[in-house]
Design a protein around this nucleic acid. Structure first.
Length: 469
DNA sequence: CCTGGAGTTGTCCTA
DNA sequence: TTAGGACAACTCCAG
């Protein structure tokens, strides 16, 4: 039987979802949503398999309320759609354009198949504020500096700003285990603890956004830097999987009456997401390669032992270790600490940013290629912006400045909880006598620093200087 | 084509 | 104690 179909991707919401709305408005009786799970694509995104499986569970129930079935099909999207077309299952198909580059390539192939078979399709822009190819300089070339990019992008957005459908659909919780979804959950058990921290539903995303705007956005400019506070929105995984759209966020923000600094800063972060996507769209080679070609000759160090210690949060630098452990435990890391841990890997250990990018890809619930790659390239100094190479985060200072009471560090590194605050961010300076008093032994209770800050800093500066010659 | 101001998130030394 | 400048030029981009 022929049906109208939504090809669902990372759009697990019913509000502000143009593809789903179009399906609902179709007059025909046969309506279907298909989700294609390509396990090759999730091969290196282990944490996200958990969020994805959860999202499917929740969304399937939600679609049931709307009398729409959700089919989960495993395999390669191009082949599967080709099959559905050949077997005369589809007569019209909607989807929201993905903001992922490799997915865009698949979409292109699918479009070709549909065109060849005279099947109507509609592709919507929903995952970015502006269609990615729309924001260009006046001469038609892409922006490379955020400020200029965002000035123009925001203007284009505001000129085309559309009202958001605010309909809230009701739904009741009914638990039912689905075999197709079961297979998507990661095989390892480490993800089970994510249950404690996250609820991947559309309702939760909206609740978080509303609370954030009500209580936090005003103080966002300063509080977002303190990892022990809930100063950030924590919406990133919801945004990644589309439990909420960037349009909904922007719209809500624009309704705020007093547009103070916190508001501006938060909107800017939306802008950074747009900018990253623009960069990756225009410079697709940056997914793996340095955007600044001169860095291809940079003397990175290969050190599997240090890399492993970094991943496990055993570098001996409390703020770095706390961040890495937060990531492992919750599938998320605070933004300030992402910068510190990334800088440590790339500058103190001088390990290639590719390694860090890969690990974050596998561990972050909010992983998004564009954001991840531009973030890492920014920290490494290989990216589009003009971040000077000598900007090396000092993990001790950063800890003292942004975790002054040590609340964050001791939460994730509880073995440090009796260390006096003046030594908390540099436990190696603690006199032995004091260590004995608190029953703490450096090198046993907590690792010695794997590199010395001053030496590592100087050696990184030298390596960067050598590069220029 | 030329010009000049500006560029996410730092650190460290000096006066 | 703290504020200011050096770090080192370079690229981007609007006018």
């Amino acid at each position: 039987m022929l049906s109208s179909v939504v090809w669902l991707k990372d759009d697990f919401r019913t509000i502000n979802n143009p593809a789903i709305s179009s399906l609902i408005n179709e007059k025909k009786s046969a309506k279907k949503v298909i989700y294609i799970f390509d396990k090759d694509k999730y091969h290196k995104q282990e944490a996200q398999r958990w969020w994805l499986a959860k999202s499917l569970e929740v969304f399937q129930e939600k679609l049931q309320e709307l009398n729409i079935t959700l089919d989960i099909i495993s395999g390669n999207a191009e082949k599967i759609i080709k099959n559905l077309v050949n077997n005369k299952k589809i007569d019209k198909i909607f989807w929201n354009k993905s903001c992922h580059l490799d997915e865009n390539r698949t979409e292109q192939c699918v479009k070709k198949i549909l065109e060849e078979n005279n099947i109507i399709f509609i592709e919507f822009n929903s995952n970015l504020l502006n269609p990615v190819e729309k924001v260009k300089k006046d001469d038609g070339t892409p922006f490379k500096v955020f400020t200029h990019y965002w000035k123009k992008a925001e203007k284009i957005y505001l000129e085309n700003n559309q009202k958001i459908d605010e309909r809230i659909s009701s739904y009741s919780k009914k638990k039912k285990i689905n075999k197709d979804i079961e297979a998507i959950y990661p095989k390892k058990n480490w993800n089970k603890k994510f249950e404690k921290y996250w609820d991947p539903s559309e309702e939760k995303a909206i609740e978080i956004l509303n609370n954030f705007i009500k209580n936090n956005i005003e103080y966002y400019a300063t509080n977002r830097d303190i990892p022990s506070l809930s100063g950030t929105s924590k919406l990133s995984p919801y945004l990644k999987f589309g439990q909420i759209s960037v349009h909904q966020i922007m719209n809500k923000c624009l309704m705020i009456k007093s547009k103070k600094i916190g508001f501006r800063k938060f909107i800017n972060e939306i802008g950074w997401r747009e900018f990253s996507h623009s960069l990756l769209h225009n410079f697709p080679e940056m997914e793996k390669n340095n955007l600044r070609k001169e860095f291809d000759k940079f003397n990175w160090i290969k050190n599997d032992e240090f890399l492993k210690k970094w991943k496990k949060g055993l570098t001996g630098y409390p703020i770095v270790d706390a961040g890495m452990r937060e990531l492992y435990e919750t599938g998320w890391m605070h933004n300030r600490v992402r910068m510190i841990t990334a800088s440590f890997l790339v500058k103190h250990l001088r390990i290639h940013w590719n390694e860090g990018e890969k690990y974050f890809r596998n561990s972050l619930l909010d992983f998004n290629i564009a954001n991840n790659v531009s973030g890492w390239q920014w920290v490494a100094g290989t990216g589009a912006d003009a971040a000077p190479y000598f900007r090396i985060f000092n993990p001790i200072l950063q800890g003292e400045k942004f975790d002054p009471n040590g609340e964050y560090v001791t939460k994730w590194c509880p073995e440090l909880k009796n260390v006096p605050i003046e030594f908390l961010h540099k436990p190696w300076e603690m006199p032995e006598q004091l260590q004995n008093q608190i029953n703490f032994k450096l090198g046993h209770s907590y690792p010695l620093p794997i590199v010395k800050h001053v030496e590592a800093r100087n050696s990184a500066l030298k390596a960067f200087q050598d590069l220029k010659k």
